[in-house]
């Protein structure tokens, strides 16, 4: 099973892939409206916002956790 290079989500169904295209390496949540992959800053901010919204974390903690996660992902290796 493929894993999204930008957020780590497993992609098993067509609907998991950006634009439903199973040849893509990133998922539906990491794609912009035109189908291209979100930038590092866009992805980082959306993950921080999501973590705060769904887990209620303090902003600095959310940012550190998101950075720790992004550091492991192939799409962002060069950013750390």
């Amino acid at each position: 099973m493929k894993t999204c290079i930008a957020c780590g989500m497993p992609m098993k169904k067509e609907s998991d892939f950006a634009m439903g295209d199973t040849s893509k390496e990133y998922c539906v949540y990491c794609a912009k409206e035109d189908g291209s992959m979100q930038s590092f800053e866009e992805k980082k901010q959306s993950l921080i916002n999501f973590t705060i919204k769904t887990q209620g974390l303090e902003e600095t903690v959310a940012e550190k956790a998101v950075e720790a996660m992004m550091r492991q992902l192939p799409a962002w290796k060069t950013r750390f």
């Binding site: 989500m9 769904t54 887990q55 550190k64 956790a65 720790a68 996660m69």
Partner: peptide, 16 residues
């Protein structure tokens, strides 16, 4: 602890 938060993020994604 950050890895633990990210484990919970997967759960919160689905629940959300």
């Amino acid at each position: 602890k950050y890895v633990f938060i990210n484990i919970q993020s997967v759960v919160s994604l689905h629940l959300n």
